[in-house]
Structures are given as C-alpha cells and as structure tokens.
Design a protein around this nucleic acid. Structure first.
Length: 244
DNA sequence: AATCTTTACAACCGCAACTAA
DNA sequence: TTTAGTTGCGGTTGTAAAGAT
C-alpha cells in the first residue's frame, strides 16, 4: 500500500515551466499569498503538483531573490556555515538573504566543493585531505532532539559534547551528528585563538562589519575567552540562525 | 562544422517532520 | 494517542549551454 501520491500525476505537467505558467503562479500568489500548496494548482488553473508550484515560487519566482553570481564573501560564509552546520542547506540559506537552499546546494556542488578540493581541503569534513580522523572533536549533537523544535532548542541552547573518541550509539552505522572542528589553517603561522578573545557569531564567521556584530569591536582580538566560533564562551548565538 | 565532454542549475523524488482532526 | 494529509528538506537527475577536440 503506502501513502497516496501528493497529486494526480496523470494530469500534471512536468519539466520546465513555461512563461504562462510562471505568470499564472505569480498572479495567483500576488492575489492570495502563499497558502495551501496542495490546492493552489487547481485554484490557479495550473496543471502542476503543489510541490512543483512551491519549488518554482521559492527557488525562482519569489521577488526577493537576489540572483546573479555569488560574491567572494558569500562563498566564504557558505564554507564557514557548512563547516558548522553540514548539509543543512535551509539553515545556511537563512543566513544569506536572497539566496535559496537549492541555489546554495547547487553552488556548493558545482563550485565550492571544487574550490575546497583545490585548496587541499576535504569539503565533507573541512579538514586537509588525507589527514587522519581527528582525535578530539567537538560535536554538536542533534541525536537527543526528538523533534525539529527540540533540534532548534538544542541549537539555541548549544548542546555540545566534547569527545575524545567518537561515541557510537545504538545505530553505529547511522551518524546523525554534526561535527565541528577548528577550520584548517596553517597552524604554524596562524595559531588558533585560545583563551584570549571573545568573538560574536558575526565576527567568528568573518563578517565583522555586519550589523549583527555584537562583540563591540568586530576586529578585536583583545577580548577575553574565546575559541573557534565562540563555542566555549557561549557568545555564539544560534538563535540568530533563523529558519526561512 | 560536427561531435563529445563538462558545467550549471532547474526540477523531481522520496522521506521526515509537522499539523489537525 | 493515532492517523492521514500537507509541507519542507536534501539528494539526485535531466538537460541546455558552453567549451574542447
């Protein structure tokens, strides 16, 4: 058995959207707003499934989309967010106004992955290629979050555990944990800040001039208490990681 | 000019999460 | 508490365009 399909596939168009379909969708959403995607196609006179309409609107037709090439700053922000959040494209997109999760995912797969490889960095782990697994890893664990809401709370409350050796839970082959670790850099010429400075989330992501900078002095390294991304001090505020 | 290969990205699919009855 | 319907997310695919041969 299984669940019924999300739409009547026999009577829906697939593939590229036509200008006329786009116009219909835009007109309908302008008039009625984003609402029930399930019923939207029929109401808008579109032979599309609701999911397809939603995707087309969110990824292509929404008026607030930025479009155009990614800037170098966006590149670096994506890399840093990915090192922190993994493939949580929607969360990453939430930090890049005008960009969609799909766009960022595509951009990651076509540009950034290669860019990191060229730098000798494994895009999956953000560690140097061929480097053995790290002995001490800081883990942000979502494993205890039963629901998405709880996961948000875990992010907000920053539930972190330090592992000297990874703990395998009941499903050893199913690793749902996000791991973060200090970004790769030449340790000899730029040692990590240890306990000598506090950085806000914006600064730790390298966007010191951001309005969200809350550490007072975006470029400061003179404050006290900090390490990568403000983990120890708790200065890093995941609550600013809004969902779309 | 023709063909093949690579790149970029829009769109689809399956599933998990959420919600309301 | 359960269940069915809906939404959102992430992985993957299809294909047009660009570049190489």
């Amino acid at each position: 058995m299984g669940r019924s399909p999300c739409c009547e596939k026999a009577h829906t168009n697939k593939g590229a959207w036509t200008k006329e379909e786009d116009d219909r969708l835009i007109a309908y959403i302008r008039a009625h707003g984003e609402g029930c995607w399930r019923s939207l196609p029929k109401a808008a006179g579109l032979l599309r499934c609701g999911k397809s309409c939603r995707l087309r609107w969110i990824n292509y037709l929404r008026p607030d989309l930025k479009r155009g090439n990614f800037t170098e700053e966006e590149d670096e922000l994506i890399i840093k967010l990915h090192s922190l959040l993994g493939n949580k494209w929607s969360l990453i997109a939430g930090r890049l106004p005008g960009r969609t999760d799909n766009e960022i995912k595509n951009y990651w797969n076509t540009h950034i992955r290669r860019k990191l490889m060229n730098r000798g960095i494994d895009p999956a782990t953000h560690r140097p290629i061929n480097e053995p697994a790290a002995a001490d890893v800081t883990t942000i664990s979502f494993a205890t979050a039963a629901t998405k809401e709880e996961e948000e709370k875990v992010i907000s409350g920053f539930s972190i555990k330090e592992e000297k050796s990874p703990v395998r839970e009941c499903c050893p082959d199913l690793n749902l944990e996000l791991r973060i670790s200090p970004p790769y850099q030449n340790q000899s010429d730029q040692p990590l800040k240890t306990t000598s400075s506090i950085l806000c989330f914006s600064c730790s992501l390298g966007i010191q001039n951001s309005e969200e900078c809350s550490c007072g002095d975006g470029t400061s390294s003179s404050n006290t208490g900090y390490d990568f991304l403000g983990l120890k001090s708790g200065v890093l505020d995941y609550r600013s990681l809004e969902m779309k």
